[in-house]
Design a protein around this nucleic acid. Structure first.
Lengths: 219, 219
DNA sequence: TTGCTTCTAACGGTTTCTGGTGATGCAAAA
DNA sequence: TTTTGCATCACCAGAAACCGTTAGAAGCAA
């Protein structure tokens, strides 16, 4: 019997080992590789292949979103099950748009990952229960959810290096003046970056920035 | 042979199942229970016992710190290995003070959890490598680290219900006026709570609050 | 009863952030 | 070569946050 080849990407080695141990009891599934960050994923897939990639969103260096975008850009048809701590509707819509086939919340049970792998391997989509509920309520509750969908193409992974510098220092609780000193630029510039960040990430204030940074492992 | 009884507490079922799968191949270790939040942990230990508790810090309802404090308060001598995504020196010192025997970063490998369990069962302490480095550098670098140690008793889990309400809304990017409307109190009161939060958690501004809330699963 | 904590509220002042707009130089891409 | 994106800087006005301090009411516990 041909086994389903799976690659696991997550920044927590413990979770990788755990999933691998869960899958080891499945006869038709084989873990052929793993990565601790997005860069490693791209490198691995440059010279290897797997039927399914289990991909965490929050990873250092290159995050899960950027990995998906890279696949899309290079025309790579990779089946991907996205793994995330947060079952955020925005995020789910985003990853589906850019090519994910399934979405699994980390709070779900280990057996579901087996289901997910089998379903996605058979060209089906897979969502964990909690996420199904969330998606449904989005459509049933009201139509304002449409506003939630980002207007531009992708709003993740779109920060310039400098913006990332500023964001990191914001998360260190620096104010604009302190940031300007740290980066050797004027406070006016810092404030421009700050405003651009807020617009780009569609948040209301620094709190939104900090939360974005945490969720995306920028800090 | 007597097996080491282990209870696992983490808000991600997937991680619990993963660790359980990793441990299943160990002959001398037996998983006797698991919990998805701190409340369940306390309930479980009220009528059951385990040799070792593997305890995640970031859990909803009652977090890992509060669980440890509860053990301490009730004179329960429970061996605990703390699990955390963040290898923050402050946090490590804190949990050691309130009775943890080991500290494991989630980014460490699955095999280390086996080592940790065996070590702690034999009354030894266990720290993952990355954490050892961090702890060492704290003592070698400079003495200013002493300032890092919280002056009061415990600075975690010390928020009043109302402060938690305000913090949650701050994390929703509400400003003081919006919070005052949501909670039916005056903006002055909101700002008092905000100041108290900043003082209590020893952060500089709302960004610090948001990051604290994220790390402690308040949002 | 007394002391402690929590929640509530207020005042005055300073600092910082946010929004809007505009502009320049540079480098890479189309 | 023109365009586009990025980083830089500036000015202004209003909004919001931050700081220090004080204080009454309610409830709980020693």
């Amino acid at each position: 019997m041909r086994k389903i080849k799976v690659h696991i990407a997550d920044d927590h080695q413990l979770l990788i080992d755990g999933i691998e141990a869960v899958l080891s009891s499945e006869e038709n599934i084989e873990v052929v590789g793993s990565s601790l960050n997005g860069e490693d994923v791209l490198n691995w897939f440059a010279s290897n292949e797997a039927d399914i990639l289990i991909l965490d969103i929050n990873m250092p260096k290159i995050d899960g979103i950027a990995v998906l975008q890279s696949f899309l850009k290079n025309g790579i048809q990779q089946k991907v099950i996205v793994l995330s701590s947060y079952d955020d509707t925005k995020l789910i819509k985003e990853v589906l748009k850019i090519g994910a086939s399934g979405f699994l919340a980390k709070k779900c049970a280990g057996e579901h990952i087996v289901e997910a792998i089998n379903d996605v391997y058979c060209d089906k989509q897979y969502f964990s229960e909690s996420i199904k509920d969330k998606l449904l309520s989005t459509f049933t509750n009201n139509l304002s959810s449409i506003d939630e969908i980002p207007k531009g193409s992708s709003f993740f992974s779109s920060l310039t290096p400098r913006e990332t510098d500023v964001l990191k220092l914001i998360c260190k609780q620096f104010n604009s003046k302190e940031i300007s000193i740290a980066l050797h630029i004027s406070t006016n510039t810092v404030e421009t970056h700050r405003k651009n960040l807020i617009n780009k990430l569609k948040v209301k204030n620094v709190v939104g920035l900090a939360i974005y940074a945490m969720k995306n492992n920028i800090v």
